[in-house]
Every structure is written in C-alpha cells, then in structure tokens.
Design a protein around this nucleic acid. Structure first.
Lengths: 267, 267
DNA sequence: GACATGAATTGGTCTAACCAATCATCAGCA
DNA sequence: TGCTGATGATTGGTTAGACCAATTCATGTC
C-alpha cells in the first residue's frame, strides 16, 4: 500500500519522525507477541520498505534500541532480541555518573538498598540450586584471597547470584545495572585491598549465604547490610584513584564548583 | 586535514565501528568536563568531520545516546545534554517488561524495596523545603479524592518528592524509572479505584509525610512499606485490564505458554 | 562423508542532496 | 526609541543509491 511512498497528501498527518515510527513498529511486534527473546528481526532493508522509511532511519532506530539493550546486531547475520534473563545495561548509569559526578558513597547506598532487599527475597525463595551456586561462590572467595582480581569476580558473581535468587527479574536487573557500574570502577582499585579486608569480606559473604540457606530473612538482610557497610568503610580507607568526595552531601569536585549553571533559554 | 577522506591506508586499524567512535568521542568530552548538563553538542556536521565519519553514522550514535537519555535533540536548534536532576528513562524497563512479561506483583516488590529505602534516607535528610513539598502533595491528594486521574498525579509527585528528598541521585533515578513504568500502566486503570481506597491511600501518604517530618527513619520505612503493600492489595482487587498474572512464580500469559523456546545457534 | 568454494543474505558505511524547524539579524514602522 | 516582522544562516530530519564486510548456506569436489 505505501511501497511507493506517497506521503505528500498531508491529510493524515504523521506525528512521529521516521526513527520513532521504526521503534513503534518494533514495539508493536513485541507487544503482539510476534517478537520474543531470541528471535531475529526482519532485515533492515525489509523493515525500511515495510515501514516506508529509508534505511539510515531504520539504522538510527536500531541503534537506539541496541543502546537500551532491546536488540543486538550481528554483522552478516541479523538483528536479534537478546535471549536469556532480562538485563538493563549499565551504560545509562555510567553516563549519568560521569555527567553528575556520583560519589562512591551514593553508589554504596543504592547498592545497600537494592541488595538488602534482594537478600531478603532470596532468603524467602532461593531454590536449592541457587543456594548451591551461592556456596560455590563463597568457596571461590576463600580460594582467591591472594588474587584480588579473581576475588572481585567471585564477589560480583555472588551478588549477582543473590539477585537472581530473589526471583524478581526487575530487582535482579537493577542490581545487575548497579553492579556493572561498581565493577567498572572497582577493577582499577581492587588490587589495593588488604589481605585482611578480603578475609573479612569473604566471612561476610559466608554469613549472608548461611542466612539465605537457613531461610532467615532478617538475618540475610542484616548480613548484607553489614557487609556493604563494611565494604564501604574499607574502600574509603584505600587511596582514592580520583577526586571522588566521600560524603553524600559533600560539595562537588573542584572542576564543578562555582559554575554559574547556565540554562538553555527556550526548552 | 581529512576533509577529502583518505582512510584507505589501513596502517592504523580502526577497532571500533563508526557509531561507537562517535559515542566514545562524546563520552570523552563528558569525562574531560568539556560537556556538562545543559550544554550543546557540536553540530552533527561538525562532529562528523571532526571524528571522520559520515553524518548518518553520527545520527545513529546520537539516536543511541538519546535513547539512554544522555542527549536530547531539538530540530533546528541543536543537540543538548539534558539539564536538571539526573534521570533514567523508563523505556528500557518498559521494553523488558513487554519482552519478559513482568507482573504487577514484581513491580510492586521492586518499588517497595527502592521506595522504603528512599523513605528511610528522606527521613534522615529531607530539607525543610522538601518537607513542605511533601505536605503540599499530601493536601493535593486529599483535595482530589473525587478525581482519580488528578489523584494519581499527586500520588506520583509525592513518591517522586520522597525520592528526591533521599538526597541520593542514584536512588532517585531508579525510583523515577520504576515510577515511570508504574504510571504508564496505572493511568489506564486509575479510574477504577474506589473512593474508599483513595481515602486510605491519602491517609497512608500523610503518615509517611509525618514520619519524614519527624525524622523517624523506622516509622517512615514502615509507613512506606505498609502503603505499598496496601496499594498492591487494592489494585489486585480491581478488574485486571490485561492478563497479567498476579503471582511472582505464576505461569506466563496465554500467548506465551507452550512455546518451545527456540534458541539461536551460534551466539 | 568431509571439506573447500562461491553466491546470496545481511549488517556497516559513505556521499550528496534536500526538507524543516529554529534563531539571530536587521530593516521598517509606529 | 522601541517594537515588529521579514529573511537568511544554522542545525536537525530524511532520503536515495551505492559499495564494503561478515556471515551463512548450498554446491561441488576430493
């Protein structure tokens, strides 16, 4: 019907831009159940002709969808909807952090809120397999006390597993997002952690694991809370790699202060 | 220097795609502090020539950045970094919800975890102005008991204000993100709420407000928890607009069942 | 039957142009 | 003097057509 592209009439105003029409189209396929995780989207050329927009517009839209993790393109193969558990990329948070100068304190606080909640849910619902996974990660932590980088990997995996055991994909996605940001920052400084700190951290993880295994919700939450508080303390003692202020209400970094906050006139 | 575009040499392998180079370029500007909230990016044509890629590629990258909320384009004016408090769009979550069938229960659970934490922080740190804003929203709630749509607006604003009063931009962003998803779903069904439910909800909000004003952290958390639990109860009684299952571990909607979960072979 | 080969498919990129919204400038008028 | 409106430069929005590059798969040879 619109293959020749006569949109000159104007009797039916197009309220959306080309790229937005593509996104709406894809969203519609998803809502109608025609597109599910693991599926492949129509080829860019097909989308372009079906929707009646140019290929560059399709590409811009697909880049937008890829940015929020809805699709993933593979050269020569196609564009796919990622399979596996739902996941939110941490890039948005990373950009926000760079733009607004999030502090380490603030990050720990957010983690604390989310992960304490996740630990509580995990204590209620963790399956035997998930409990076993947690046990594996705890032993991994104790086995890598002398390898801070590897320790960090087990650390991340433990927290990821707790989030998964919460059986709430939204909470899990949020934890993943924050963890991604944390890992991004942490891998540069992980080597500075002292042996004693790693030992303490491993103990804390073990305590969390035991509480979850015992299905003790309050103990799990308390253990996670204590762990994150302690981790925050330890890392605030490590030499800071950057000028990140430590206080939540502390003044912003030097380069930021005194800026007259110019606003755009006609938003 | 590269206006004529001689990139045939190949002696310096480009490891990133064109769009990625643009994103890296912008990210670098941000990290160096040359680009801050409220600023305008170079014109697309300038970016293209500076980076050495074509304009469609720049556009694709800019669409990607716009999708995660890092930039915002205004036709005829330019592309800007949004000013104001840091914010995460709720589209990623919305797509994930559509793709994986998040339930209302799961959403309330995530809200509960985040907002109970936010309420606790708000009780510790809310400024007098923020407390006053909360008071305004509470009166707005009581004033709109007979207008469910307006009530919903005050409802959202109250929760948004609590998040802002947490003085943690990460937590606030996350709450905003979830709230956006909630609002998206809720506005269709808000009219079905009963008068009595609205009255109860307004009372709950008042209780939260009073606890925050009194700087009673535990009371604030408990009040928020009770409120969200109650809201969940009420809304599960309302006729469902869609086939959203109520249980966290409930089977997926009809259109989803029985699908053999075809996977892509060579990821 | 196993493996190399090449065509078809599909994403990745570019050039060159035009349309459309915005904005700053400046002439003209009150 | 001060305001208003026209106008051209700037900037995002979109298109068309072409070519490159990675992947896939059917084909044919050994």
């Amino acid at each position: 019907m619109s293959t020749t592209g006569e949109r000159r009439q104007g009797e039916e105003r197009v309220l959306e831009g080309s790229a937005d029409r593509v996104i709406t189209f894809v969203r519609d396929l998803i809502d109608r159940g025609r597109l599910r995780p693991g599926d492949r989207l129509p080829a860019e050329r097909d989308l372009a002709s079906q929707i009646g927009v140019s290929r560059p517009s399709v590409r811009a839209a697909l880049h937008a969808l890829a940015a929020i993790g809805v699709v993933r393109s593979r050269h020569g193969s196609g564009t796919y909807i990622p399979d596996g558990p739902p996941a939110l990329g941490s890039e948005p948070l990373s950009f926000l952090a760079a733009l607004h100068g999030f502090t380490r304190e603030e990050m720990y606080e957010a983690r604390r809120i989310l992960e304490v909640g996740a630990a509580g849910l995990a204590a209620e619902r963790a399956t035997p397999e998930q409990v076993a996974t947690l046990a594996d990660e705890v032993s991994g932590l104790f086995a890598s006390l002398n390898d801070p980088q590897l320790f960090l990997v087990h650390d991340i995996n433990f927290h990821r597993s707790v989030a998964a055991a919460s059986a709430n994909p939204i909470v899990a996605s949020l934890v993943e997002m924050i963890s991604g940001l944390y890992y991004e920052r942490r891998r540069d400084t992980a080597a500075r952690a002292s042996d004693r700190d790693l030992r303490d951290a491993a103990d804390m993880h073990r305590r969390i694991y035991q509480a979850i295994r015992a299905r003790d919700v309050n103990a799990a939450k308390r253990a996670m809370e204590d762990h994150l508080m302690q981790a925050r303390e330890y890392q605030s003692k490590e030499p800071a790699d950057d000028a990140q202020p430590a206080g939540a209400a502390a003044p912003p970094p030097a380069a930021r202060s005194g800026r007259p906050r110019r606003r755009q006139a006609a938003h």
